[in-house]
Design a binder for these strands. Structure first.
Lengths: 118, 118
DNA sequence: TTCATATTTCAATAATCCTCGAAAAATTGA
DNA sequence: TCAATTTTTCGAGGATTATTGAAATATGAA
């Protein structure tokens, strides 16, 4: 993930409807959600959800895949992880001792690592 | 960091000049940089840097502090960390096993933790 | 084929954001 | 006080982005 990609990812996440979509898709997991289901959940019109889904897809944060009449969207965990990495590396490129507390964040993703540290 | 705060933070980071500012301030550390110095480094006019600094300050990602004639800006590591946490918690609220690789990110911030795991 | 479902595309409008330059504030030194 | 330095504020413009509804596309079922 380079700076240009990060820019478009941040732009994609800086709109309420799109941020809601991402959060729903992340929770939905690999099975994803259809465009129509997303439109219902975030309460916007089909054409509007389509517009925002295209933006998110273009940024690489989500993937699309047709399944019968529906188009199923899924979160792209790699690019989400890449964005997090971009933020943290920026952080640490300066003064690691200052931003070390941010490392505590991992307790939600790496409980096993936490156990080992007990 | 709630969703509303994350939205404004993402909006703040979704503009090239502002992203450059953040990266410079993170590297600069607690001593920060004056508005004029930032304007030189990113090669924009004083009024333009002022506009973007205000946006960043409003989002909480940076802090300002007058020092003689200059105004020194510093990165706010807490809010940056909060944003990272927001992204990761979203990530993990779904399927932790999928986004666990993102935990590898911490190797840049918490070398000591890595050592313990050897 | 015809119809219903699901989604996208398009054009127009509305809203927001960015840039620029001139003027105004705040601070310091002569 | 006057002048120089540093930064901000303001208004106008141009550019980008969001919303809306109507029409088009794709798929599957009758």
């Amino acid at each position: 993930m380079n700076q240009r990609q990060a820019l478009t990812a941040f732009a994609a996440l800086s709109q309420e409807t799109r941020l809601q979509i991402i959060r729903l898709l992340v929770v939905a997991g690999p099975e994803g959600l259809a465009a129509g289901a997303l439109a219902e959940k975030v309460e916007v019109s089909p054409s509007n959800i389509s517009f925002h889904l295209k933006e998110l897809e273009h940024s690489g944060l989500i993937d699309a895949q047709r399944q019968s009449r529906s188009i199923i969207y899924t979160a792209n965990y790699e690019s989400l992880g890449g964005l997090i990495r971009f933020l943290m590396e920026d952080c640490c490129s300066g003064h690691p001792e200052i931003c070390a507390p941010a490392a505590a964040v991992t307790t939600c993703c790496a409980p096993k690592m936490e156990e080992k540290l007990q």
